[in-house]
Structure formats: structure tokens, C-alpha cells
């Protein structure tokens, strides 16, 4: 049975106690997107400044549990300064890290090699998750996966909106 130490790793608690990139950005030029977890009432606000196809800056607002807040904080550190394509690849890699449980339920095999129990079954090539891998323990607590992915889904929505905005001639 998974223990609390699998969930609350030190790096997660550090990001929870000292969240990075907390705050707001002026809109425009930034876009502001909100994400809600209807199960627990958590909400996250992502301010995203995308220019020249790159995440120039982002800030995180809202409130939530240690998992949702630390995940958002780590996410902000991971994608700030990255190109939109790199940010999207990071989102895919992170969500794949979070989807191990679902894949097992689907009966999908991870080719019998490589990633063992608890490891990412579909590694996204070229993406180094670094600190974010500390959140891997969350998949052993299925109810909490939505906490960890809330900010990432919100970021994905923000990237879509930012790209739509820049694609629209003003």
C-alpha cells in the first residue's frame, strides 16, 4: 500500500511552501485562463504571455491543495522561456506520467520492457521532466491525479487561446 512519503516528497512540499511564479500579468498582452476541479472546488488561474512563439512569462494564481499548487509551481518553472512546441511536449510528457493508472485499467501493456511498476509507460522523447518526476507518486493516489493535472490542462487551454489571439489579425 502506498505511503504518504510517496505522495508528499520533499521537493513537492518545497514548491508548496515557496511557490514559484506566483502572481498576475497584465492582460493583454497576457491571456488569463481559469481551471476548476469540480470535485474539490480548487481553482487555478494561469496568466500566460506568449510572443514570438515562446512562453515569455507566466504567473500562477488561485487556490488549492499541496499537490495542485506544487504541480502548478513546478510547471511554471518548467515551461517559462520554452517555445510553445516545447511547452506542449512537456504537457504531453507530464500527462503521460499521470496516466499510468488509467492505462493499466485499460489493460494496455508497456511492451513488457523498460518502464517498470510506477514508471512512465509512454515516455515522451526529448523531454526531461526533472523535478516534475517527483509527482509520479501521485498516480498511486488516483483521486489526486486531477489535482496534479489541473494546472497543466489550464496551461494547454491558455496556449490555445494565446495562439488563437496571435493568429487573429488586429
Amino acid at each position: 500500500m502506498p505511503g504518504l512519503e510517496d505522495l508528499y516528497r520533499e521537493i513537492i512540499l518545497d514548491h508548496y511552501r515557496n511557490p514559484r511564479n506566483r502572481g498576475e500579468l497584465p492582460t493583454p498582452p497576457a491571456v488569463r485562463v481559469e481551471g476548476f476541479n469540480p470535485l474539490c472546488g480548487d481553482e487555478i488561474v494561469v496568466f500566460l504571455d506568449v510572443a514570438d512563439d515562446r512562453v515569455q512569462d507566466l504567473r500562477i494564481g488561485g487556490q488549492g491543495c499541496s499537490i495542485s499548487q506544487s504541480s502548478a509551481s513546478m510547471m511554471s518553472a518548467a515551461v517559462k522561456g520554452k517555445t510553445v512546441a516545447e511547452a506542449r511536449a512537456t504537457i504531453r510528457a507530464f500527462k503521460s506520467l499521470m496516466s499510468i493508472h488509467e492505462q493499466r485499467l485499460d489493460g494496455a501493456d508497456d511492451d513488457g520492457a523498460g518502464a517498470g511498476a510506477g514508471g512512465p509507460s509512454v515516455p515522451e522523447p526529448e523531454v526531461k521532466l526533472g523535478d516534475l518526476e517527483a509527482l509520479q507518486g501521485v498516480v498511486r493516489f488516483p483521486v489526486r491525479i486531477k489535482c496534479a493535472t489541473l494546472s497543466w490542462n489550464t496551461l494547454a487551454q491558455g496556449l490555445d487561446e494565446a495562439q488563437e489571439t496571435s493568429a487573429t489579425p488586429s
Binding site: 505511503g3 504518504l4 505522495l7 470535485l39 474539490c40 472546488g41 480548487d42 488549492g64 491543495c65 499541496s66 499537490i67 493516489f141 489526486r144 489535482c147
Partner: peptide, 21 residues
């Protein structure tokens, strides 16, 4: 401390409480 985190830590010692809205 967020209610989710409270509930999670309480579960570790068998205490079942609800967290949410």
C-alpha cells in the same frame, strides 16, 4: 492546510473524513 491534504494525512492513520465543497 488544504482539506484534501488533511484528509490524505488522516487516511494514513485510518481516519476517514470528507474533504471538499
Amino acid at each position: 492546510i488544504h482539506p484534501h491534504d488533511i484528509s490524505q494525512v488522516l487516511d494514513e492513520v485510518g481516519v476517514c473524513v470528507r474533504a471538499g465543497h
